[in-house]
Simulated assay, not measured.
Amino acid sequence: MKKVTIADVAQHAGVSKSTVSQYLNQRYDYMGEQTKARIEETINVLGYRPNILARSLKQKSTTTIGVIVANILHVFSTQVIRAIEDVCNEKDFHVIICNADNQPEKEKKYIEMLRAKQVDGIIAFPTGGNIALYQDLVRENYPIVFIDRLIEGIETNTVLLDNEKAAFIAVETLVKNGYSKIALLSPPFEHAITPRMERLNGYKNALQEYQIPLNEEYIVSGKTSEMQSLIGKLIYLKDPPKAILATNDHVLMELLTYVKKNQIRIPEEIGVIGIDEVSFADIYSPSLTTIAQPSFEMGAKAANLLFERIQKKEIINQAKIYRFEPKLIVRESC
């Protein structure tokens, strides 16, 4: 079956090929309503489908960006992706989502795949394991924006939370509510994962500010598979904590699971506060006090920064770090 071309549409509609091209690119400034209606009707009658590959070669743009997320199961990640997709939809861009699972090997494959597909830019939650590869992209002036994590040695615009302030506010809230024995629960501490290290620093700074001695036994980190056992050891210390700061949504879920399973009362027996607002926070009983990230604003900022780089196509003289303010949401858990 013969493929329908722009020339066929133009001939059938009685207009020039350039007019059809302007219609397809939504440039209607000097186009009458009757002409637009006639072209639209012709396209529907003939079943014309634009050649996306040919258009991308001509425009030197695939109108597509890639997003490499560290772990798509985090609430923060999904909300950021949604915001990025909203911005891209407004600009008629497509989004390819890649989940690296915090594995540098997967991240490397996704970077190479996205480059092979000639996406116009990449937003990444970097693992920290592909520094040389990202440095090459920066040297090539390839549009790239980091979100949630800083990687030493790579100069590119980065969007993230003021993580130290988030943890400081959490501890401060607990202290003001009468708690002094405060534990921190976290995924494994890795220097490449900025939020974990910065939230640990914020926790320590707050303890120092309020003259509370640091108890190393109260700092607990581990994989999700280990978390129930680690929480049990924490709860049954000789001098156990009276409140726990969960540093992300997954850790909070593990803590709530343990508390429910062992019939520990919140906040009577243990105070709980979490960083990352979760959808069930206000309907959980008791409702959960959290430190929220403005994830939609952060995702939109990352997308807009990337589009600025795509459009300007110029080397940035100095990469900037954009920090967003955490927000305390007071409820009943501490």
Rank of each mutant, 00 (worst) to 15 (best):
L57N: 02
A7M: 11
K109W: 00
V67K: 09
E155D: 14
E332R: 14
L200G: 02
S61K: 11
K204L: 13
E269V: 06
N177M: 13
E164G: 10
R323N: 09
N215Q: 10
E190R: 15
I235R: 14
K327V: 11
E85F: 04
A100M: 03
L46W: 09
K181T: 01
D86L: 07
E277C: 01
L328C: 08
G32A: 07
E105S: 15
T158A: 04
N304L: 11
A302M: 11
P50Q: 13
I310V: 12
E40D: 12
G299L: 05
L160C: 09
K109V: 06
E268S: 14
S180Q: 12
L237Q: 15
Q26D: 12
L252V: 01
I147T: 14
E85Q: 15
G14K: 02
T257K: 14
V80K: 02
G121N: 11
N141S: 09
I316T: 10
I329N: 05
Q59V: 06
L57S: 00
R55T: 09
L328D: 08
P294D: 08
V80D: 01
E308T: 14
P267H: 06
G202L: 02
L255K: 11
F307S: 02
F324T: 00
Q208T: 10
L73Y: 09
A302S: 12
V20Q: 08
G299E: 05
A167H: 10
N99H: 01
H74Y: 15
A319F: 04
V259P: 03
Q311M: 06
A167I: 08
I310C: 09
Y48G: 03
D8I: 07
G128T: 08
A319G: 15
A292F: 03
A166N: 04
K165G: 05
D120A: 07
V220A: 03
Y322Q: 03
K312D: 11
S295H: 07
I315N: 10
H12N: 08
G202V: 01
